[in-house]
Structures are given as structure tokens and as C-alpha cells.
Design a protein around this nucleic acid. Structure first.
Lengths: 341, 341
DNA sequence: TTGAAAGCGCTAACAT
DNA sequence: ATGTTAGCGCTTTCAA
């Protein structure tokens, strides 16, 4: 028995060297074949592929990433998975990135802003190709890391502000304004607002602010608001509208912080026999399919979440290919007139 | 000017060596401090932490993972992000794993079963601590990889079958059966079924099969089915019920493949003035909050998706700690009587 | 409690 | 078209 060299690989892991030995070529040749990189003779390629299959080789992207100083991972930080809009964005992102073999590494903040810096640091430790974060507002520490990261940074959902690198989203200020303009045009004057925790959801806050400003310009009144100290949900919207109408029965149109909330409001009206839009007009934000399937389709603005994710992914890939990406991509929205306002 | 050694680090990356130099200790000491591993003098710890902050050190988990032959990543493969149940599971998983610094790497199949093997291979390349896949049915190639992977494998959503390693989910067979038993007890005898693509969603298929078998045992009839060749959605449920009632107006109770579909059915009834449950009874599956917020809460089974993800994450962590995990974790469900059946 | 040396498995750079 | 060499930045092992 020969004395074994002091080695940590117990011999259980199949490596490039094993494939190389089997195929009778060098490691680097195997590496080239497996990555389709550089000129390879067709015969060699086949032999190497056969050898890899034979010995049961599994790529080791950890080792590869260390050698190339960068991983085919994209870090993603979103505030929530409960609200379907974020899975929608994630879907678009994964669709774009997975085609080139890039994978998303996920983190959820639960809207805790003080968590973001820790998550950014934690994701940067994986030497990702890019980081996708939500919104344009971040604390100073996070900002510093994003600027120093040396990777593509995409801020999704919002374009109202100055991006660190690239922003892909919609203008929530415009959204709030256009909803108000539409409702004013329809003749409503006595408004209410039903919202969710606006200290957490900064984009909802922007819509709210623009909505109110536009009402004021239009000479209309906001009679009252009902704002839940929690995340948006159908239940919160339903309870919120009930409360608002109790306090301000004279309200004739209600703007909800998003479609989930508005759908809750619709359920309240259906359950209590409040005629919509005859007695009360309702408007939301997002254009969820669900709202369009209600007995009366919801009046709302449709946002393109999948497209946002997809464009974010494409911007990341374009960077890799050396293209200079737009720094602000406004995906836009469309008014869905619906039948509730 | 001294001749530079041929080195690939252009000097831009801050490494452990930089921190070590700054702190006046060796690299391994820095490594120990940063990982809180091994005995370290309090003074040393503070000096190292200060040095790390000063030079702006960012952990490199790629290098660390190569050295330790395993990453703090967990690969996750789900069929969809459109159906909220999968984000729910993901949320539970992330909640459990992120507390220990583990991150999830995501892949979505879009219910394309032939994609699964490629995604498993692609995720294994990141040398994850564990792999989380959906369901118990996989093609032969995927099965072979999962068995050979040498990592913890958790199959989520379903427990009706033999897991590769660990299964965390519910029995869809029991779910289908118990729904049928409940509806039979309520006195319904003329049934209909409205479903989505059952060739893709194998768990919906199990519920469907058990539901039909139980009806037969109970001497009831299935008068007709309407099955959309697409993923489940509110729109598909609404259209499906409309079609079913056209063909079989004598149906008195309809089982939907899930809550999304059932909610669509409810919307049809609301829009068309079909009395529920007087004229038609409706039952779903999942117990989404949305269904419980309808003017009449939906009759359904509540599943605990967040909990499933959380238990999957905890099983993975328990393995790391050397515990021997249960191989089948039945998370169970509860009947929500609601008011639609 | 700390350190020196060796290696994890791969790829960039430089041959041939 | 293929190979040799020298790292990538960290942690394990062994030693002090």
C-alpha cells in the first residue's frame, strides 16, 4: 500500500480530472468542452461528453466561480411573497435569466427596512453577477454597499427617483395622479381612501400623495381615510371600507392602495348590498386578473410585473454582453376602465 | 519598478489577507473570527472586526464553499409562481433557512416535467446543502440524480407516495376523499367537476381521482366535468363553471380543482344570479384567504403552505445538526365549512 | 489561542 | 486544437 498524499478529497467526488483521465485528454480540454468555449474538435467533444456521462460528472460552479471571480447567480431582494406582484416580477426575472443558465438567489425582507443592508451583504458574498432590489429608497449603509458592489444593480418597481444603476418599473406618482384625474373626469367629488401600512410600502405612499395632490388641484375633497397598520390584503380592504363608510357615509368614490384592498372593498359592497358604482365608486391599482374577473371588472391601472422582471433580467444580460443599458426603464401602465367607477 | 508576479487578482478585491495584514494576525485567525469558529481571544476578535470594517471586507462564500466542499445554498424547484401556493411555501422555506444564513436558489419549471432533470443538474452544480423539489413524481433521470446527489432532498406538497428522502406535504388523496364525504353528508348527489390541466398538476389529479372514487362508493353520480387545458386561474374557473352548467344544468354541487378555480365559479354565480348554495353548491381546495373573504366564505380545505415550507427548511437544518429527520411529514389540512356548500 | 502549509476544483494566461 | 502552469480566496489539517 502506497502512502496516500495528504489530500482532502476522499476520492468520492467526481472531478474534471476524472473525466479527463477517462477521455484521455487534459482537464482544461474537458473544461472547454463542458463550457462550449474555445475551439474543440468534434471528435474530442463527443469523447469528453461520453466520458463525463460515464463517470457521472456533475458541474461544480462553486469552483468555476472562484476561478472566474464571479458567479452565474443574481441576488434578489423583495419585501414580500404574500402580495402576488413580487412573485410576478420574480417570474419574469427567472424567465429571462434562466435561459442563459443564471439562477436567482432569493431574500425576503418582510418590509423590514433595517434588514436590507444585511441581506445585501449576505447576497454579495455569493459574488453575484447582479443584484436586484426593490424600490429606490434604501438606508445609507445599503446605498454605500450597492454603489461599491461593482456589480449591476437593478432597482425594480419604481422609477420615481435616481437609481443607483438601473431602474425598471413604473411611476407611482403618475399612477396616483392619473387615477385621480380619471375619477374627477367621471364627475366624482367626495373621495375616500382605504390603504395599508404606508410607512412600509413606499410606493403606495407615492400613489397616495399624488392622488391627494391631484384631488386638491381639481377642487375635490378627501373626506376621510382608513389606513390599516398592516400589509395589504383582501381582508384589510374589506374591513377598511366598512370602517370608512361608517365614519364617512357621504363618500362617493374610494381609492384603494392596491387591487387586493379594492377587491376586499368590492366584497364588502357585495355582502352589504352597496351598489357599485351607483352608490359608491371603487378604484384600485395593479390590474390583477382577479379584479377583472369580478362580476363587475375593477376600475384600476394595470402594471406589467412579469415584464418588469423580464426587462430587469434582460438588462443584466445586456450588461454582460457589454451593452450600455438604459438607466431608467419605465414599463408604464394602462388604465382599465372596468365597471366600478 | 519591480516585476509583478503573474497574478489574476488585479489588487481590487479585498480579501482575508488584507484584513489579516491590517489586524496584524494571520488569515486563518481572521477566518475564525468571521465565522465565530474556534477559540479566539476577545481582543483579537475586536481588532479583526475593526480591521474588516476598515478595509471594507465582503465575505466570499464562493471561496469558502469550495474549501468546505458545500455551500450554504438550498436549491428549490417549483412548477409555478403564478399560483400563490408556491410563493407561500417559498416564504416558509426562506423564513426557516434565512435565520441560519442559508439562501434559496430558485428554479421554476412551468409544469414542464422534462425540464426538471436539467434544473436539478443545474442546481446541484452549486453544491447546495439540500434540494427542495415539488411532488413525489419525477422522471427516471431526475430520480437517479436525486438519489445520487448526496444531499438532503425534500419533496414538498404531497405525501402520497414514497419519498426519495424526506416528504413534507399533505395527502391529496385524503383531501379529495374528505371533500366528497363532506358533500355527500350534506345531501348532495348530482355532482360536477371543474378543473384545470390535470396532465400537468398531478396533485389535482390525485384529488380528482379520490373524489370520484368516493362519490361512486357513496352512490352519487358525477354528471359531468369541465377541464381546461391550462393552468388554474379565476378566469378558467369562471369559464369552466359556465360551460359545465350549460351542458349539465341539473348539477347540484361542483368540486373545483382548487380555490382559484372555485372563486372563479363563485364569480360566475354572482354575475349570473345563481344562488349558492341554494341552487348550486361549490367546494374548492387550499383555503386561500381570498375565498374566506368572499361575501359567502368558500367551502374548502385549508392547507398550510407556509408551514410546509417552514417544516421543509427545519428538516434541512435538523439534518445539518446531525438529527435523523422523519421521512414523511404530513402537515394535514382542515375542512373550512364556509357557506357555499 | 494562533499559525504554516496544503489543498478544494476549476479556469485564465500563456504556450505549443 | 490542445496542454502546462499558476492561481482564484478560502478552510482543513497539523503543529506550536
Amino acid at each position: 500500500m502506497t502512502k496516500k498524499p495528504r489530500t482532502r478529497n476522499a476520492g468520492t467526488t467526481v472531478t474534471l480530472a476524472d473525466v479527463a483521465r477517462e477521455a484521455g485528454v487534459s482537464e482544461i480540454t474537458v473544461s472547454r468542452v463542458l463550457r462550449s468555449k474555445g475551439p474543440i474538435a468534434e471528435k474530442t467533444r463527443e469523447e469528453v461528453n461520453a466520458a463525463a456521462r460515464k463517470v457521472g460528472y456533475v458541474l461544480n460552479r462553486i469552483a468555476g466561480s472562484l476561478a472566474t471571480a464571479g458567479s452565474e447567480l443574481v441576488g434578489v431582494i423583495i419585501p414580500s411573497l404574500t402580495n402576488i406582484v413580487f412573485p410576478d416580477v420574480l417570474r419574469g426575472l427567472d424567465a429571462a435569466l434562466s435561459r442563459r443558465g443564471y439562477r436567482t438567489v432569493l431574500s425576503v425582507t418582510g418590509y423590514q427596512r433595517d434588514l436590507e443592508a444585511r441581506l445585501v451583504a449576505s447576497l454579495l458574498a455569493w459574488r453575484p453577477t447582479a443584484l436586484v432590489v426593490t424600490g429606490l429608497e434604501h438606508d445609507a449603509e445599503t446605498m454605500a454597499m450597492l454603489h461599491a458592489a461593482g456589480v449591476t444593480v437593478v432597482e425594480v418597481m419604481d422609477v420615481d427617483g435616481q437609481p443607483v444603476d438601473i431602474a425598471v418599473g413604473v411611476s407611482h406618482t403618475r399612477a396616483g395622479r392619473e387615477t385621480a384625474v380619471y375619477l374627477l373626469q367621471r364627475g366624482y367629488r367626495r373621495f375616500g381612501y382605504v390603504g395599508h401600512d404606508i410607512g412600509l410600502d413606499l410606493r403606495a405612499r407615492k400613489r397616495h400623495a399624488a392622488f391627494l395632490a391631484t384631488l386638491a388641484e381639481g377642487g375635490a375633497q378627501l373626506l376621510g381615510e382608513s389606513v390599516a397598520a398592516e400589509a395589504s390584503s383582501v381582508a384589510a380592504g374589506r374591513a377598511g371600507l366598512a370602517e370608512l363608510l361608517r365614519r364617512h357615509p357621504e363618500v362617493e368614490a374610494v381609492y384603494f392602495s392596491n387591487d387586493d384592498m379594492a377587491i376586499g372593498g368590492m366584497f364588502h359592497c357585495l355582502a352589504e348590498g352597496v351598489a357599485v358604482p351607483g352608490r359608491l365608486a371603487i378604484a384600485g391599482f395593479n390590474g390583477l386578473d382577479l379584479g377583472q374577473q369580478l362580476p363587475q371588472p375593477l376600475t384600476t391601472l394595470r402594471t406589467h410585473r412579469f415584464r418588469m422582471g423580464q426587462l430587469a433580467g434582460e438588462a443584466i444580460l445586456a450588461r454582460l454582453d457589454g451593452a450600455t443599458a438604459e438607466s431608467i426603464v419605465d414599463v408604464g401602465f394602462e388604465l382599465l376602465p372596468g365597471a366600478t367607477a
